[in-house]
Nucleic acid binder design. Structure first.
Lengths: 160, 160
DNA sequence: TATGATTACTTGCGACCGCAAGCAACTGTA
DNA sequence: TACAGTTGCTTGCGGTCGCAAGTAATCATA
């Protein structure tokens, strides 16, 4: 009665996938909870501020920011709604194209980001470096980089 | 004006984390969209049916299923609400403890799962095996397994 | 210039899910 | 037996986000 397709045999080679799923769920929950509790930012809030901080003039078209964060247009609208309400980001219109709006990091936003980054990066390092060596982390990053999403603009770690 | 803490230097060693985030987002979206479109199941629906299919008598206490899927009690209630409405799962009460309810996979649920597994597993393999060798996949799984969530009941691939 | 396609963004809707509160049932201790 | 603590589950609420539809601006082509 047990299906052949559901047995260990058939999915052994893709064991990496459920583990990725599980690791993501646990690490995200942990890091996000702390970021929210300590700084009032979700992971996406944090990533958005980070991308803006790297951008020229601390400004990015909403559509470009959406692409970097893997959010849909509606997602970015709501994300930025929150950041604007809190004063970390403002809007700026584009002179040459009335359709586009820039999201601009404010000085307060940059301060917020830097405060959050200090504890957040320490937490990320604590989670990862406690369990894997530098070499292993590099291998992991390399392998993940070859999976979907690894090409193009792939990381949070390449300032211009 | 640019903060030292936000530069490439400081996060190079944890590049694996943003990549994991990104890979998860893309792969999840892709696999989930297909699973929903082709079989009317979310990834968690699928995982729930899979865990039940592995369990003795195709039944699991709701709380145990929640733990395996990394869902809260409320999450499992709603997930199972949907699966019960569709007839893939039913409730069964426990004779020795009136607090517990078992989730039981129905015959229809098992058929549904097997149909979904065929295409889903093929899609997972297509995504992963096209980009990484068997050996690399094993390395990836091993490294992920040492991150949080890797201990205890860690995978989708170990039938009893 | 006219117009159809594309692009940037917003909004209504619904799905999923965590948190906190609540309830019923069980357990341990006296 | 009495009762405080624990466990299993449900429900109301709110947050996040994708999808589809809609608007406005721009571009391309005739």
């Amino acid at each position: 009665m047990s299906s052949q397709i559901l047995t260990e045999q058939s999915s052994r080679t893709v064991e990496a996938w459920p583990r990725l799923l599980r690791t993501h769920a646990i690490v995200t929950r942990e890091l996000s909870a702390r970021l929210v509790a300590e700084h009032g930012l979700t992971i996406n809030d944090y990533e958005a501020l980070l991308r803006l901080s790297w951008a020229e003039n601390s400004a990015l078209r909403r559509v470009d920011l959406a692409e970097q964060l893997l959010l849909t247009p509606s997602g970015i609208t709501r994300l930025l709604d929150g950041l604007e309400r809190d004063g970390w980001v403002t809007k700026r219109s584009c002179e040459s194209d009335a359709r586009v709006t820039y999201a601009v990091l404010t000085d307060e936003g940059r301060e917020r980001l830097e405060a959050a980054a200090r504890s957040h990066l320490a937490q990320v390092r604590a989670l990862f470096e406690a369990r894997l060596s530098a070499e292993e982390l590099e291998t992991l990053a390399e392998l993940l980089g070859r999976l979907p999403g690894g090409d193009g603009d792939s990381g949070s770690c390449s300032p211009p």
